[in-house]
Design a protein around this nucleic acid. Sequence first.
DNA 1: CACCGTACTATACACTGTACGTTAGAGGAG
DNA 2: CTCCTCTAACGTACAGTGTATAGTACGGTG
Lengths: 214, 214
Amino acid sequence: MARTPRNTLSAELIVRTALELMEANGTDAFSVRGVAAELGVGPMALYTYFRNKDDLYDAVRDHLMGLLPDVPPDVPWPDQVRAVCRSLRLLMLEHPCLAQLLAGRPLSGHETARVAEGLLGVLRAAGFAPETAARTHTTLFTYVLGSTSWEIQMAAERRDPEAWRRLRASMESLSARDFPSVVELAPELARTTGGDEQFDYGLDLLLAGLRTPS
Amino acid sequence: MARTPRNTLSAELIVRTALELMEANGTDAFSVRGVAAELGVGPMALYTYFRNKDDLYDAVRDHLMGLLPDVPPDVPWPDQVRAVCRSLRLLMLEHPCLAQLLAGRPLSGHETARVAEGLLGVLRAAGFAPETAARTHTTLFTYVLGSTSWEIQMAAERRDPEAWRRLRASMESLSARDFPSVVELAPELARTTGGDEQFDYGLDLLLAGLRTPS
DNA sequence: CACCGTACTATACACTGTACGTTAGAGGAG
DNA sequence: CTCCTCTAACGTACAGTGTATAGTACGGTG
């Protein structure tokens, strides 16, 4: 038996390989066995380094979060907030699997904490009270998560011609009598399923609210 | 062979059964075969009514969206927006599977269109230009989706004692030197993982932004 | 009555995550 | 050098998944 040598594997190597496969074939097609095969190893070998599939997901997520830049210093705090939110969105767009990795599991991990620390630090330095800072952090995070997940989902749909055709068809079958606004605004709605402008529009709404004394 | 009689099945019955199973066992444990078994029928019988599992998901989603009330008339538009967003959130909390059904697939279906029509109608009547109305609609929708999905996810995590223990442990292992804000605000952060107040906080930020002339 | 479309069944395939028990190779102890 | 132990990787197995394909019997129509 040509057994693979002893220490070919490592948590880091597995995470890198898992990430590559997710990007290549999509998160849904990702499987433990796929990673093992890619590494030329039996499926169970990975369980030496991860308790289960979710544990591997968490590790991949934290690996990706490590790619986020630090908060830019020496700019007004609203610009810092914008920068953090934008860079998280960009990272998600660059690594679409991150959307599902963030949405499906609780936050944990060193790099994830680093990112939270950055945003919370900005808000605290801007003078927000503890509770308001926490609320704002969660609001911003869930906005970025929701809007960017949606954007990614829509982009994926558009790439699948069959699904996209069906979606158009179901849109066009709507009666203009029953759904006047949807029918009238269909082109605009299609345009708002993603893009920097749409993201910044919502982000600026939130920031405008933050500066309005409540 | 005691063959089941001819017209025991219907799309509506399947959808209702599927929904019951999702609520009982969680969305992740949901399977086509489970629905078939519950109905006392072979797995393939369902494929007479749905092209595939995703198609069934869409039907369940639209069924749930049908439970949303219409927009309350005769109140100021910001209250109408609030009402729409809140009732969507409440429906998601009552039917946690809805979060995954909304996030994972594009919008389609009659009832889903009805809800979109309601919100778009409010915005148009409030005087928003077509593009702004569409942008605002998408922003509000993705905010509700993101924040409520997160809330549901966190609530599920809290119900699993083992996962919750691990989460607490990873929180407490963070060094107060490296992550001062996270450590300091940990209690506040835990409190912002859900609840009406947290949701309304973000929603009011958006509404405040909407009323600020840009 | 015969017929046909269709609602359901049966079988099968290629997968999945992972529990369990085994084995071989590397590193340290004598 | 030998021996022992520890553990990383193995093989096997199980219970499950979605769904393609082909077959079958029933209800309604001619």
